[in-house]
Simulated assay, not measured.
Amino acid sequence: MASLLPPTAGVSAGPGATAPTAGASQIRGDQWHLRYLKVAEAHHLSQGEGVSVAVPDTGVSPHPDLLRNLLSGIDTIPGGSGDGQQDRDSHGTSMAGLIAAHGRGNNTGALGLAPRAKILPIFVSPPQSDGAPDALAEGVEFAISRGVDVISISSGGSTSTRLDRAIGTAIASDIVVVAAAGNKPEDSRVTYPASRSDVIAVGGVDRSGRHATVSVAGPEVDIVAPAVDIYSTSYDGKYSKGEGTSGATAIAAGAVALIRSRFPDLPASEVAHRLTATAVDKGPPGRDDQYGYGVIDLVAALTADVPPLGFGSATASAPAAGTPSTTAAARPGDDGDGGATVRGWVTLGVLVAAGTAWVLIARHRRRSDDPPPRISR
Rank of each mutant, 00 (worst) to 15 (best):
L4S: 04
L4N: 04
G10F: 03
P15G: 09
P20H: 12
A22I: 08
S25A: 15
S25P: 06
I27M: 12
L34E: 14
Y36M: 13
H43V: 04
H43A: 04
H43N: 05
H44P: 04
S52V: 12
V53C: 00
A54T: 15
P56D: 10
V60I: 14
R68L: 10
R68W: 05
S72T: 15
G73C: 06
D75R: 03
D75K: 05
T76W: 05
P78L: 03
S81Q: 06
D83P: 11
D87G: 13
D89Q: 08
S90M: 11
G92K: 10
S94T: 08
G97T: 10
L98D: 06
R104E: 07
G105C: 09
N107Y: 08
A110L: 04
L111N: 10
L111V: 14
K118I: 13
I119L: 06
I122T: 00
S129G: 13
S129V: 12
D130F: 06
G131D: 02
P133T: 02
D134T: 08
A135T: 04
V140M: 11
I144A: 01
I144R: 00
D149N: 07
G157W: 01
S158R: 09
S160D: 08
L163Y: 09
R165V: 08
A166N: 01
G168V: 11
S173L: 01
I175A: 08
V178C: 02
D187K: 10
R189S: 14
P193K: 08
I200T: 09
G203Y: 03
G203H: 02
R210K: 11
H211L: 15
A212F: 13
S215M: 01
A217Y: 03
E220P: 01
E220H: 01
A225V: 09
Y231V: 12
Y231C: 07
S232C: 09
T233Y: 02
G237T: 05
Y239D: 10
K241C: 14
G242E: 06
E243D: 06
G247I: 01
T249M: 15
A252H: 13
A253G: 00
G254R: 05
A255G: 12
R260E: 10
S261K: 01
F263V: 00
P267N: 09
A268P: 09
S269A: 06
L275P: 02
T276M: 00
D281G: 04
K282Q: 13
G294W: 00
G294F: 01
D297W: 02
L298V: 05
V299C: 09
A300L: 06
T303W: 03
D305K: 03
L309E: 14
L309T: 15
G312E: 14
G312F: 11
A318S: 03
P319I: 00
A321E: 07
G322Q: 02
T326S: 06
T327N: 06
A328F: 12
R331A: 02
R331K: 09
D337H: 07
R343D: 11
V359S: 04
V359Q: 02
R365M: 03
D370Q: 10
